[in-house]
Nucleic acid binder design. Structure first.
Lengths: 155, 155
DNA sequence: ATCGATGCAAAGCGTTTGCAGGGGT
DNA sequence: ACCCCTGCAAACGCTTTGCATCGAT
């Protein structure tokens, strides 16, 4: 969430946050996973697994695409990253751990974060009875996902 | 949109609506496409291409899966159906032409329509300046997509 | 009669898996 | 030393494509 300024500051440096989150989820902290995480944190866009592979290869020339996929899986499982599958093409990955919204280009499938505060109550605002109404029908609501769609001018 | 009662009544019977929409988009109206459309309109759930194939096969035993994919493409292109790609598995298809929201089961990837009125102004309500702000940065907003996430109890 | 649509099979793309060897704890 | 992780290649699931034939207009 870009504009949000009242969030707690990151208590741990990135490397420590990575290690503790991975280990808490039962994964080891390896060079490959650190390189994938560093790249994800460094870019504005939300790259595909192939994008990550091409970038990380410059630092670790022997890394394989399968390892990138497994590193991304470990990061997602450790809640350090999110997997975005709404488009037609390959999945995209996002390391911003605060809940937030996305803009998606319907032409290129590119994704960007939106500079708008995330509203945890949005579903209730649509219809205050929706969540309890759904629960009665066997739907247990855990969250929601909002994507703004449109065209992103190529520059 | 299940609960919406103030929408215009369908002016044309389903078969005519199908034919005119397909032809307007430059597609022919064939038995296979009609069978796919009829099935999509008949079910509550949002089936995958494979689901459609298995169902339509009972009416047209010689239809192929490739034809189902091409029929679905024609229906989507003719605005008679929508392709839902947000999950991890195969795409799902939806023939309800009114804009609406979905519930998605994070376990099974099943999708259902939500009985809540679609709000065209929702993005403005999040932040009245968001759309013009995005336009200044080269993002041209055309719409949005909202999915409620949760668990759907198996019955 | 024309030209798009069908059905079949093969290829395509993104992703996952099996496995032998390597590296983190 | 243990066991997880890596890198390679092969398999996988979903979707698209090439092509000869069929069928809608």
């Amino acid at each position: 969430m870009i504009l949000s300024t009242n969030e707690p500051p990151p208590c741990l440096p990135r490397a420590e946050r990575l290690r503790s989150a991975l280990e808490q989820a039962g994964w080891r902290c390896t060079r490959q996973r650190a390189a994938v995480f560093d790249y994800l944190c460094a870019v504005e866009s939300h790259p595909t697994a192939e994008d990550v592979y091409q970038a990380v290869r410059r630092r670790l020339p022997k890394i394989s695409l399968a390892t990138v996929y497994k590193a991304l899986e470990a990061l997602v499982d450790s809640q350090l990253a999110e997997k975005l599958t709404s488009g037609n093409g390959p999945a995209r990955f996002d390391c911003h751990h605060q809940a937030h919204y996305h803009f998606r280009c319907v032409d290129s499938d590119e994704v960007r974060d939106l500079p708008v505060a995330y509203d945890p109550q949005l579903i209730d605002k649509l219809d205050p009875q929706l969540i309890s109404h759904l629960r009665q029908q066997g739907f247990h609501v855990t969250g929601y996902r909002l994507e703004v769609l449109g065209h992103l001018q190529k520059t």
